[in-house]
């Protein structure tokens, strides 16, 4: 019998953020978005900063900003390990937009000593937070 739901667990080093039963999830994989449905083949991937969406078994759509990490997919279990996970409610929109501007300006006039990878990472994070805060 095919499973109709799977368990989603999202953990950061500091705590377990989510433990929910869902029917589908979209996860920001490092090489593109991963759409996960129940019964997905076992998969391991690293993640990028992005928006994790999932539909809880109650039918509610939830979003969460996550920043990097890995995902382990099994037919009835999806485990997301991430450096940081934020609820939309926890994000201060004004601050997120401000940090987005800061990140953009840092990239716009790039100096010799700026770590490009880090600046890009900061930009990405800021974009994700702004995107999620709008909802």
């Amino acid at each position: 019998m095919a499973a109709t739901t799977f368990e989603l667990e999202v953990a950061t080093p500091e705590k377990l953020v989510i433990q929910a039963t869902c029917t589908e999830a979209t996860i920001p994989g490092a090489d593109g978005e991963l759409g996960i449905l129940p019964g997905h083949a076992a998969l391991l991937s690293s993640l990028t900063s992005g928006v994790l969406r999932y539909k809880a078994s109650s039918g509610r759509d939830e979003v969460l900003a996550i920043h990097g990490g890995w995902v382990e997919v099994q037919p009835t279990l999806v485990r997301v390990l991430t450096d940081a996970a934020e609820n939309p409610d926890a994000i201060d929109r004004a601050r997120a937009e401000e940090s987005l501007k800061r990140a953009q300006s840092r990239l716009a006039n790039i100096a010799e000593n700026v770590d490009l990878a880090r600046a890009l990472n900061a930009l990405k994070r800021a974009q994700v937070r702004v995107e999620i805060a709008k909802k």
Binding site: A11, T12, P13, K15, L16, E72, R79, L81
Partner: peptide
């Protein structure tokens, strides 16, 4: 409480590391 809260991540990480 903090020690307990940190456990799931650590356990998952170890498992993932083992399979990888």
């Amino acid at each position: 409480e903090r020690v307990l809260a940190a456990r799931p991540y650590a356990a998952m990480l170890e498992q993932m590391l083992a399979s990888v």
